[in-house]
Design a protein around this nucleic acid. Structure first.
Lengths: 340, 340
DNA sequence: CTGAAAGCGCTTACAG
DNA sequence: CTGAAAGCGCTTACAG
């Protein structure tokens, strides 16, 4: 049996009320009693039950987080930054890794509700009807991090994906590339699918560069799909001289595919990534990438969520963070490249 | 105000006992009442409070996990596998990312206790005195995953690090390498520090290969330290022709360093990693690695922990899983290599 | 098959 | 400054 407050009270010869008071650091307890209580706590190895405390206080200090893929460097970095902020504010994280499994998500959302988490963070945008209904119904604050699903009720902490993608493409154009392949995301995703595609498309047409149907492909953000889609890009009659993949993972997959076909990055083909994950510095050549402020994204997400929990009436607008193109080795000027 | 069981009872015109019964799927409730209750639950959007339920059942379905570094591919993969098993068994994960911060760990361990988690998983072996005392004192099952701290009270799910390291080294020796550099871990770590070093050392001396002091270095398992230590190895008069790093991350760092010095892997220097993380297939050349069964490690950890929670008297012995050397491109026969 | 009552381990007015 | 009592939202004997 766990020792409980009653045992401590008995041991110290005081009432449970008094024990509770020293537990919660209230003043108005004589030093004499306070030290007796503390000694009893020490001697009995007492640890108050958060469960019981939560019940009466109606406060759990719990936050539920739904991660699409824990093993992804991008998400685990956001999560780690969320965790840091949470911990600093005495919140604990209940984490759920749904790997494309929508049923699991719904189940977890229910668990979150039953656990009376004070806030929910969601990091993907594949929101189906039951989930949409659910998050609209509950009165727990919900916030989206790194994505913005088609839904105006919730705050999203994101970058301007359209603009970022536009600039990334423009960068390649300015490097002299006239054929730029695109490895996009899931077009059902607004943020990372549609917006990034639009940015690419408009940058191309604005520059008077023609869009080549065979140069436009879509993956699932993971390394393997980058590899597979690149393979397709290499198999067309006139492969592009540069490729823009909307995730670093896919960009790395593309780079590997290019190398496995005995071509060189960036001499033969330039590769541009997106996200700014650890991978960028880890591969060779290092990967030029349109970077999201990943750490900050996690931090700001928790910041805003904590405010929502505190009941501050948040203006329902999104938080849009700065993106930044970090040039590394994987992209090269087309003319220099051909000269080599 | 949250709707509670009393509201449902009133709405359905039954007692809370009856509502509780249908909630918990007990038989002995007339279909008539059952459907009235279910309708009331539906209409009111009622979700039972796990907090209250936990209090009376003395069961939280919570497991606390302490991860050294969420952004590491190795740990996040174990965590993801733990999460999967937990979820399948209706357990939820409270995760704590301590980044070398021992104070944070102790704080979290306290939180875990107060939250009445049913089990605790720890994935590192830097156990200091206060933490040791703490985990020895609490009556919550504690299990170590991927490490075995110097302590006999707890079960560890591990591989035979000594043997794995011995075999990895032997593999390089059999490839004809006579000078094999070593990038080890923290020698305060029994499992991944001392045991892996011993395996290397003994494989070398058993083969009659002499240990070269300047060829033996120690990092912190991360990419950067692999890079830095490799730089040192390259600066000695006679650099080794092969390098064994005790983590894939360090091995990748070493590979990058070698390349940045205009040397080739594996033509000039072979590189062997350890862990079997996603990186192995992702870098070029692909990384030969002594692999741990990462997924299985997470799964088995949860398996054993669940048994301990169920009160099964576990024989206090560790679970030792199979390691496996996976040969890829980064290691080459010394003679072939020099011929090129 | 159904319900009234006690109790899970705390906190918090309320009274003194 | 201290304590008795009510209550947080459930479940579970117990009685019928």
């Amino acid at each position: 049996m766990q020792v409980k407050i009653k045992d401590v009270a008995k041991h110290a010869g005081v009432s449970v009320t008094t024990v509770s008071r020293v537990l919660n650091g209230e003043k108005y307890v004589k030093d004499d009693l306070k030290s007796r209580v503390n000694r009893a706590i020490e001697e009995l190895g007492y640890a108050p039950s958060q469960i019981a405390r939560s019940l009466v206080r109606k406060k759990t200090n719990l936050i539920g987080v739904i991660v699409p893929d824990l093993t992804s460097s991008f998400y685990s970095t956001i999560l780690s930054s969320i965790e840091e902020m949470a911990s600093a504010n005495d919140y604990n994280l209940l984490v759920c890794n749904i790997s494309e499994d929508i049923d699991k998500e719904l189940k977890y959302l229910n668990v979150f509700q039953e656990m009376r988490v004070e806030g929910i963070i969601i990091m993907h945008e594949k929101i189906n009807e039951p989930i949409r209904n659910f998050i609209h119904k509950i009165k727990i604050p919900v916030i989206f991090s790194s994505v913005k699903p088609m839904d105006q009720k919730f705050v999203s902490v994101i970058i301007d994906d359209y603009q970022a993608s536009y600039e990334a493409t423009k960068y390649l154009i300015e490097l002299g590339h006239e054929t730029i392949g695109f490895i996009g995301g899931d077009m059902r995703d607004i943020t990372s699918g549609q917006n990034r595609y639009s940015g690419y498309r408009n940058a191309m047409t604005d520059a008077g560069t023609k869009l080549v149907f065979e140069h436009i492909r879509f993956g699932d953000y993971k390394v393997k799909s980058g590899y597979d889609q690149m393979k397709e890009l290499l198999s067309v009659e006139h492969p592009p001289t540069a490729v823009f993949a909307v995730s670093d993972d896919m960009a790395v997959g593309a780079m590997n595919c290019i190398r496995d076909h005995n071509l060189r990055v960036p001499e033969d083909i330039s590769v541009m990534g997106f996200d700014g994950s650890q991978l960028t510095e880890l591969v060779r050549p290092t990967l030029t990438s349109m970077e999201q402020p990943i750490q900050q994204m996690g931090k700001v997400t928790m910041d805003v969520l904590l405010k929502q929990i505190a009941g501050e009436t948040i203006s329902m607008s999104d938080v849009v963070l700065e993106h930044r193109l970090v040039a590394r080795e994987s992209c090269r000027n087309r003319n220099e490249a051909t000269r080599m």
